[in-house]
Design a protein around this nucleic acid. Structure first.
Length: 128
DNA sequence: CAGATGACTCCCA
DNA sequence: CTGGGAGCCATCT
């Protein structure tokens, strides 16, 4: 039997579950939402340890900060494309367009997590 | 307790 | 673009 997920991993999974279909987030952003001594690496490790018991965690929606896919052989890009995520000619997710803005403030408070700091918008303006 | 490890990220050559 | 190195941190040996 798989060992029960440590507390931090459970929080990471909870945060990842907030990312809506068609959007993506980076390991670092997820870590920022989780807070409490969690960094991008911790998120990567936690997702790498996903087992059958956490099949409902949309791990494919977490990519590197620059939109590149760090997994190999997991069909991550296919899964994302299937939910409407667009990629550029370099095979990177078009972050400005799909980047998750963070959890709802009320949800964050209720779960003792954090919202993402507002980001400068030059990039976000690429919308349509 | 000390090391090794990993689906990260940033910086510089 | 590529590659190396340094921070980062929870987990597992």
């Amino acid at each position: 039997m798989p060992a029960p997920p440590p507390a931090l991993a459970a929080r990471i999974y909870l945060a990842v579950r907030q990312i809506p279909p068609g959007q993506v987030s980076s390991y670092g952003d997820v870590a920022a939402v989780v807070g409490g001594g969690c960094d991008a690496r911790s998120v990567g490790v936690a997702l790498g340890a996903l087992g059958p018991g956490e099949a409902d965690v949309p791990w494919q929606r977490v990519v590197s900060r620059d939109g590149t896919i760090s997994t190999r052989g997991l069909r991550q890009q296919e899964l994302l494309a299937a939910e409407g995520v667009a990629f550029d000619s370099y095979g990177r997710v078009m972050m400005p367009r799909h980047r998750w803005r963070g959890p709802d403030a009320a949800w964050a408070t209720a779960n003792r997590m954090h919202t993402l700091p507002p980001r400068d918008d030059a990039e976000q303006l690429e919308l349509f």
